[in-house]
């Protein structure tokens, strides 16, 4: 049985804090993919089944995920995750590898202390939903620094 936890990835892209309140959990009845969103994907990204997502209870979905999904709790794992994220996209990781490592260390510190891999160059407000927008990668394509300098706020991602 293939299981995936897409919830955190989805949370990074919430721009309207009210939107998250309307999101629900959906389970692919073929392969048990879990999706968190306003509706389930038309085509399951894992098994390719069409119209296979059905609403699922929160606690039930967490049981489906269980201990699967893996951990990203080491600097090297963080960097691998980012390298995978940039593949085929119009941006890349900053070429200053020391800087990239510093940011990875900072995000892991934030994970340990605050429960999320918040950007070390942003400050949490204490408002849970607002702070979801500070989880790395954030929606940097709309940021002023991206438009002006071709970099996300912290400089981790830069235009190719």
């Amino acid at each position: 049985m293939l299981k995936s936890a897409m919830a955190l990835y989805q949370l990074c892209y919430v721009s309207d804090p009210l939107e998250i309140m309307n999101k629900r959990l959906w389970r692919c009845f073929v392969c048990n993919d879990i999706h968190f969103g306003l509706k389930g994907p038309k085509v399951c990204p894992t098994c390719g089944a069409k119209d296979a997502f059905v609403l699922v209870d929160n606690s039930e979905s967490l049981k489906v995920i269980g201990d699967y999904g893996g951990k990203i709790d080491k600097v090297e794992d963080m960097i691998k995750t980012w390298e995978s994220f940039i593949e085929g996209k119009g941006f890349k990781l900053n070429e200053d590898r020391e800087m990239v490592r510093t940011l990875a260390v900072g995000e892991l510190e934030n994970m340990k202390n605050k429960g999320f891999k918040y950007c070390p160059c942003r400050i949490t407000t204490g408002d849970f939903e607002k702070d979801l927008n500070l989880i790395c990668p954030c929606n940097f394509l709309v940021q002023k620094t991206w438009k002006e300098y071709g970099e996300c706020w912290c400089g981790l991602f830069v235009k190719r």
């Binding site: 934030n110 400050i123 407000t125 500070l134 002023k144």
Partner: peptide, 28 residues
């Protein structure tokens, strides 16, 4: 402000002008 909560609270308290300068969110 990341490891000192008292400093972070101060930043949030005076945060209006800072967040404007940062483009909407508090940043460092």
């Amino acid at each position: 402000v990341w490891h000192n909560e008292e400093n972070a609270r101060y930043m949030r308290k005076v945060g209006d002008s800072i967040s404007k300068a940062c483009g909407g969110d508090l940043g460092v």
